[in-house]
Simulated scan of single mutants.
Amino acid sequence: MPTPAPVLDARLVRRLRDGLRVDVGFQLVPGITVLFGPSAAGKTSILRLITGLLRPEGGFVRLDGKALFDAERGIDLPLRRRGIGMIFQDDLLFPHLRVRENIGFGLSAMGPGDRESRIERVASLSGVEHLLDRRPATLSGGERQRVGLARALAPRPRLLLCDEPVSALDVAGRQVLLDRLRAVQRSEAISILYVTHSPAEAVALGSRLILVRRGEIAADGPPLEVLTGPAAASLGLTHLDGVRNTHPATVEGHESTRGGTQLRLIDGPSLIVPPAPAAPGSAVTVTVRSEDILLSRGFVPGLSAQNQLPGTVERIAAHGGEAEVVVRTVGVRWIVSVVLPVVEDLGLAPGADVHLIIKARSCQIGVCPPDPLG
């Protein structure tokens, strides 16, 4: 399969006020890329350099092949002409405008019918269609962030930049926004660059991770591979607390005897989960914490756990006294966190056959929003 053409091609050079020098180059294709690193590594500055809120001293920014900035050619388009959407830690909504007006603020060039259609579509994608006549002061923090997401999407940007948008939300609010971002990426086929310093968010959300250290790219690759590699270890990242496995699935049916719901993971096995308020055929996501999965070297009879999934160990990332074991079950990879002695006790190694033991109640279900265009 040919490699998709890059949506963003950037080379950014800039010395910041605190003496840090940003010097990075990377490309983005449609999908979710995580920009990860410690505080003051330069992550937010990279976003600002892409948008033009901070002017690079050298390099270029190209979106779909169009130059937004080019130091040699003297090109420097203003933010309003760059085709880039942004969401931040703070929602930055206009308090005097209703949600509908906030979302439609950047759509003045559209006709009334097209404008309203676009507002309704992005409101539905972001899960705020029932809030359109409310004002920001009446919304929760998570609701305001989802309105901010809808407003950023409304003008149809080709690139969405997210600067730690869930940092001020509770656990439930974070999960809802992350689920919406995944749905948005699929529906709008947009490239998303997401800044975080949370390993759990990075693994749950991104298919690629760029690790930034002191203004430079220290590593670039699959999130788990980077986060358990030497570059992350040099930053003191020795364990991955709270990492979650999140997979898309389809509801197969509901069990009348045991009261559970049966899902079919996309490209993967079936899974029994707690009763889910979704009809057969509905699209959902299932999330399981890496530390809530047990490993065995074969099927174990007589367990109360309803799921025993056969799989194969692909790789093991050991760090300190812990390890992350990557297991493939059909076409789905799982991350399982174990203490290091378990690796030796079970004889785990790449190619080893194992079973994943997962309690139904360890599975959290998210119902995917429908596509407004069907």
Rank of each mutant, 00 (worst) to 15 (best):
270 S>K: 10
303 L>C: 15
346 L>M: 06
157 P>Y: 04
362 S>W: 11
143 E>T: 06
71 A>M: 07
210 I>D: 09
30 P>Q: 07
349 A>Q: 12
368 C>K: 13
121 R>Y: 03
149 L>E: 01
257 T>E: 15
228 T>L: 03
321 G>H: 13
73 R>A: 13
132 L>F: 02
278 A>N: 15
314 E>I: 00
149 L>F: 01
38 P>Q: 14
247 H>D: 13
126 S>T: 08
163 D>M: 05
1 M>L: 14
266 I>P: 06
275 P>V: 11
142 G>L: 08
78 P>Y: 02
334 W>Y: 15
354 V>E: 08
55 R>G: 12
266 I>G: 07
179 D>K: 06
103 I>T: 05
175 Q>R: 15
145 Q>N: 01
291 E>V: 10
256 S>T: 15
80 R>H: 14
306 Q>E: 15
189 A>S: 14
229 G>A: 03
23 D>F: 10
151 R>F: 02
103 I>W: 02
125 L>M: 07
304 S>H: 09
343 V>W: 02
151 R>Y: 01
65 G>V: 05
20 L>A: 03
281 G>T: 04
293 I>F: 01
28 L>R: 10
317 A>Y: 10
53 L>Q: 07
224 L>K: 11
166 V>K: 12
59 G>N: 03
187 S>V: 12
286 V>A: 15
107 L>V: 02
199 P>G: 08
207 S>R: 07
347 G>D: 00
61 V>Y: 08
144 R>E: 01
25 G>T: 06
215 G>V: 07
6 P>R: 10
72 E>G: 11
367 V>Y: 15
48 R>K: 06
112 P>H: 15
346 L>N: 01
220 D>C: 12
142 G>E: 09
226 V>W: 02
53 L>V: 05
350 P>S: 13
69 F>G: 12
191 S>Q: 09
342 V>F: 10
328 R>G: 02
357 I>Q: 07
360 A>W: 07
204 A>M: 05
41 A>M: 09
357 I>W: 00
111 G>W: 03
175 Q>T: 13
204 A>F: 01
118 R>N: 00
86 M>I: 10
